[in-house]
């Protein structure tokens, strides 16, 4: 479904991401693990069209090339990103955020059904439709962000550290929600620092260090790998 090959991101001379290759299959949850500044966010932002990819990169979504497309066209192609910091419309209400989520032409036909799905997934949002988004708690804002992304009827959902700043309880709720999203036929690619919980729901994982992908494998294998445990699971 998503095929990424030779993807690099440059900030001036600094290589934030160096020749990354990865794939996400249909119906998969794939997690990218790495420390702060390892290049995780750059990877997602480049795939979503928010950052330019260095020449030579190949990004294909269901056989369609995405490199060079503006971000709004990539949403139309079926990829939705929940960025770090969530980027919800803070001044607008929950209802307006969800309405805008379905701005994509591909989302219009399914809008009523997707809305019902989102509200079933996050019942809290149904109670807060009229609330201004920025007055909500961090966990609720994350629900708005994910709900808005789902409103665009994506084939693939990208999440940048969705568990950041959430309580352990909310965090577990979030990862359960990801499994339900996958159950609706949407593939998920997320980057995380919370290795334990993300590996528990993921099918496969990649390890990223200093802008390079240094390892990959089935989530269960990664969770059991002593090196991974030392680097990402130690102390938690």
């Amino acid at each position: 479904m998503l095929e990424v090959a030779g993807l690099s991101v440059l900030y001036g001379k600094h290589r934030a991401l160096d020749q990354a290759d990865l794939s996400v299959g249909a119906g998969e949850i794939v997690v990218i693990l790495g420390a702060n500044g390892a290049g995780k966010s750059s990877l997602l932002r480049a795939v979503a069209g928010l950052l330019p990819a260095a020449p030579g990169a190949k990004v294909m979504l269901s056989g369609r090339p995405l490199v060079g497309l503006p971000a709004h066209a990539i949403v139309e192609a079926g990829l939705a990103l929940v960025p770090e910091g969530r980027a919800i419309f803070g001044d607008l209400t929950v209802r307006e955020n969800l309405l805008l989520g379905a701005f994509a032409r591909r989302a219009r036909g399914e809008e009523t059904r997707n809305r019902a799905r989102v509200l079933a997934l996050f019942p809290r949002l149904a109670e807060r439709l009229g609330q201004t988004a920025r007055t909500m708690s961090g966990g609720e804002q994350q629900m708005v962000a994910i709900g808005r992304a789902l409103m665009s009827a994506p084939d693939l959902l990208l999440l940048d550290e969705p568990s950041l700043g959430l309580s352990p309880l909310l965090c577990s709720e979030l990862f359960r929600a990801l499994e339900r999203i996958r159950g609706d036929g949407i593939s998920v690619l997320l980057v995380e620092q919370n290795a334990r919980k993300s590996l528990a729901v993921a099918d496969r994982g990649y390890l990223i260090e200093n802008g390079r992908i240094v390892g990959s494998g089935r989530a269960a294998d990664l969770a059991g790998d002593p090196a991974v445990q030392r680097a990402y699971l130690g102390g938690r």
């Binding site: 979503a48 069209g49 928010l50 503006p70 971000a71 709004h72 066209a73 949403v75 139309e76 939705a80 990103l81 960025p83 980027a87 919800i88 419309f89 803070g90 001044d91 607008l92 805008l100 989520g101 701005f103 994509a104 032409r105 989302a107 808005r148 992304a149 409103m151 665009s152």
Partner: peptide, 10 residues
Amino acid sequence: VDPVAAELVA
């Protein structure tokens, strides 16, 4: 409100 977020909703 947020031009980057606007791009992200197409």
